[in-house]
Amino acid sequence: MLASIYGAIVLGLLYALMALGVYITFRILDFPDLTVDGSFVTGGAICATMISNGYNPYLATLAGFAGGVIAGICTGLLHTKGKINGLLAGILMMIALYSINIRIMGSPNVSLLNIKTVVSPLLDEKIGVYIAVAGVAVLLIKALLDLFLHTDLGLALRATGDNARMIRSFGANTDRTKILGIGLSNGLVALSGALLAQHGGYTDVNMGVGMIVIGLASVIIGEAIFGMRRVWIATLAVVVGSIVYRIVYALALRVEWFDSSDLKLITAVLVIIALVIPQVRRAMKQKSVARKRTLELLGQSAGKGGRA
């Protein structure tokens, strides 16, 4: 039981990078990017293929990241320069990447069993050491992202999703900031894929299916726990959300009448509930505030009438 929760924490940390990528597109750029399902595998495919061909595992991991950046830039170009609807641009890239990923690997999957990787020394250590190292690495990447989002360029990127017209009027090329953001996002997603390939010892062309929904679930769970008041809180929330998601996932697997194949459905339902509840709550709150204020105003005018 406890071992499975520790395992879930490790997975949560590795998937957190993917969730941070989804946070950049979904929350900062307000661009639902479906490239993720493909670019996650691209990262794993490049990394696994390079390692099994004898390249340095760190270099291979970095190359995985770069592969994701390129995939993201392609989606960004399709959307901004090709004027293709954002969702469709992502779907097109996702489909294209399926073939590309098989081409990269030369087959639908690559095994990394008994090969030295970035992660393999940690797999032999105590799980606590693994959690500590992965935690520090993820928090470091999160901190770098926080810093970037406070630079002049980072501010322009955030404004692109918040009020594109405004930041254009102050001289930012919003096409370029969008491409940059989608590229960075898919880089993080692919980095996550590269690390998980090394953790699991293989890359499979189907391991990215539903990744976007898992990313969304992590972002939304994190928001529900921490809120998004400031950038560094929001990114921390995403990391925690990813870990919580993996723990819930691990626990759900232990429930007897669930099949592991049901988990995608559960994730989808979770995301739907998390998206719908805030809207319903807001509508209800607005209605009750409006009613209260109307009664107050009515009371005031009645009071005045009485005095006159």
Binding site: F148, H150, T151, D152, L153, L155, A156, R158, D162, F170
Partner: peptide
Amino acid sequence: TAPRMTIEENLTMAYKRGQRRGFGWG
């Protein structure tokens, strides 16, 4: 103005009107 960003951040973006934006702190 950008509503989800602070007054200070909005002014920073305006301060860089028409200039190149890089990795300098905002």
